[in-house]
Amino acid sequence: MTAKDVMLAWVEAFNRRDADTLVNLYHPDASNHQVAAGEPVVGRDAIIRDARGFFAAFPDSTTKLEAMHQDGEWVMIEWSGGATWRGEFAGRRPNGKTFHLRGCGFFQVVGGQIRFQRGYWDRAGWFLQLGIPVE
């Protein structure tokens, strides 16, 4: 599987909200650093916990691949997406509000698995759309 194939499979699994398939695209010791969220999430167990939590909170979440660029084992994507808040998130009860975001991600794909991921998106804009105080 090429790095580009892995990314297309990642987007497909994300849009199905299929945490099990999604996490199997990661190396067992992978690191996912969503910069706006804080510290990196390391390892498949932590990555699947985050994915399951996100999909439970936003069961209609989708992402649209706006652009993808590959340079060797690195794939860079630009994306847009959104969802409706339906489950507990950030220690808060859902309120049914929707959000739409744009962002970008950088993925290092080694041996057909995501070894490292870093994402950039607007946390303040996201939380304001959901009615969550920006801290």
Score class of each variant (00 low, 15 high):
R16Y: 04
D18R: 11
D18V: 10
A19V: 04
L22F: 08
L22M: 10
Y26G: 01
D29W: 13
A30S: 11
H33L: 09
H33N: 12
H33C: 08
A37C: 09
A37R: 14
A37W: 13
G38Y: 07
E39A: 15
P40M: 09
V42Q: 06
G43Q: 08
D45V: 06
I47M: 02
D50K: 13
R52I: 05
F54D: 01
A57V: 03
A57H: 02
P59A: 10
S61P: 01
S61E: 09
T63A: 13
M68P: 10
H69I: 13
Q70I: 07
D71M: 09
G72H: 07
E73A: 10
I77P: 00
I77Q: 00
S80P: 07
S80L: 11
T84E: 12
T84F: 07
G87R: 00
G87Q: 01
E88H: 07
E88C: 04
R93W: 00
R93G: 06
N95C: 10
G96E: 05
L101F: 10
C104D: 03
F106N: 05
Q108S: 02
V110M: 13
V110H: 15
G112D: 04
Q113I: 05
F116T: 07
Q117M: 11
Y120V: 13
W121A: 15
D122Q: 11
R123E: 11
A124K: 14
G125Q: 06
W126C: 07
F127E: 12
F127W: 14
L128V: 14
L128G: 05
Q129R: 06
L130C: 08
P133N: 05
